[in-house]
Write a protein that binds this DNA or RNA. Structure first.
Length: 151
DNA sequence: GCCAACGTTGGC
DNA sequence: GCCAACGTTGGC
């Protein structure tokens, strides 16, 4: 089992919307490193912290799990989508995404500032300077430490 | 709203 | 293949 953090702008797609939808394809990722995590490393059942970026405050809002493996991201092929990529074709879709399923919304929202205050998490990808990757790996030690903080 | 950090693009 | 210019991310 691997662990992840997936970011979403709270204004665009929040944990509340995730809860309402139950399941959603994680479309719109247009970064190769993040895509490669979804295509090559995310496994069914992997747990992902749901992170609100560009939020006030930013932080971990809940938990989801991978419920379907990566398939072509339809939004890249859809001319009307804001995520449309003119270089993507049905033969070479370029972008792929997994489906995730709602697990939990945390009663104790865990802010970025709070995460930074824990020295055990200082190596986390999320907390490195200039780290903007929208899908990031989380070690099992980091995962259990965060679960402990959420309580 | 600012701006540092990062990824991508495209000229050469 | 280099690298300047540009667009985006995301914390503050």
């Amino acid at each position: 089992m691997n662990y992840w953090i997936i970011k979403s702008e709270a204004e665009t797609y929040s944990i509340d919307q995730m809860k309402k939808d139950t399941r959603t394809w994680w479309t719109g990722v247009r970064n190769y490193q993040a895509r490669n995590f979804m295509m090559n490393e995310m496994k069914l059942g992997d747990l992902c912290f749901f992170y609100h970026s560009n939020a006030e405050p930013p932080g971990i809002a809940g938990l989801v799990k991978v419920c379907a493996p990566a398939t072509p991201d339809e939004s890249a092929l859809d001319k009307k989508s804001e995520y449309h990529d003119p270089k993507a074709t049905h033969e070479k879709p370029i972008w792929h995404c997994v489906q995730v399923e709602f697990v939990e919304k945390y009663a104790n929202f865990l802010s970025l500032a709070n995460l930074r205050s824990n020295v055990k998490l200082s190596k986390m990808v999320l907390l490195q300077k200039g780290s903007r990757l929208s899908i990031q790996p989380v070690s099992s030690a980091e995962f259990s430490e965060i679960i402990k903080m959420i309580g």
